[in-house]
């Protein structure tokens, strides 16, 4: 009897957990999606990126000056680099490939993300998207998620497949402007363009 009751409760629980849903915001999903398309197809290809080699040299010399010179700031506190360049794959990790930019054993290393993309780096990296042009922060955050999806769907699969050690990768991408950590890549870049040769 207990066994039957247990099976019945397992199959037909008395309580059903359903996540709460956030209230709707000003813009609809279609608006956010079309804003992401417009940015991805029109603004991003035309955006001017800094030469990654120049930014890396500046970071090695003086991180604060490099950030002040080459990063764009968003609001109060956050800053991002938008860089372009080329490097040789020196290592593959679970969610990234590491590139040496330049020649020689001491060439600076950057990381190109190949795994899930989170956060606002792509949205804010170029400095072209303004929070005050959308109806709410929620919509602005939804825009970040839309752009991350585009990176994951359109850029990362080929990069993951083809970026093998020794190959060269030409890329454009966005990175959080943070002070380098010793022993770690100077930049962790979310690629918005990548070509493997």
């Amino acid at each position: 009897m207990f066994a039957i009751a247990a099976v019945a409760l397992w199959c037909f629980p008395l309580f059903h957990f359903r996540p709460l849903v956030a209230p709707a915001t000003g813009a609809g999903v279609a608006d956010v999606s079309s804003a992401a398309d417009k940015f991805w197809n029109e603004q991003l290809p035309a955006a001017r990126a800094a030469d990654v080699a120049v930014v890396l040299a500046a970071l090695q010399k003086n991180p604060q000056t490099a950030i002040k010179t080459y990063a764009c700031t968003v609001g109060l506190g956050a800053a991002y680099f938008f860089v372009s360049g080329e490097g040789r794959v020196v290592a593959r990790e679970r969610n990234a490939v590491r590139l040496a930019v330049g020649t020689g054993a001491d060439a600076p290393v950057v990381e190109l993300q190949t795994g899930p993309v989170f956060g606002n780096t792509v949205r804010d990296g170029t400095g072209l998207l303004d929070v005050n042009r959308v109806s709410s922060l929620q919509d602005f955050n939804a825009l970040a998620a839309e752009l991350n999806q585009r990176v994951e769907a359109r850029i990362l699969p080929a990069l993951r497949e083809r970026a093998q050690p020794g190959t060269r990768v030409s890329f454009t991408g966005c990175a959080e402007a943070v002070e380098p950590v010793p022993g770690q890549p100077l930049l962790t870049i979310v690629p918005t363009r990548a070509e493997v040769r």
């Binding site: 604060q64 506190g77 943070v178 770690q184």
Partner: peptide
């Protein structure tokens, strides 16, 4: 783990 340093710098400057 990488720690965002710039926010600190900017905030410190602001403060």
């Amino acid at each position: 783990m990488k720690l965002p340093q710039l926010p600190t710098l900017v905030l410190a400057f602001g403060l």
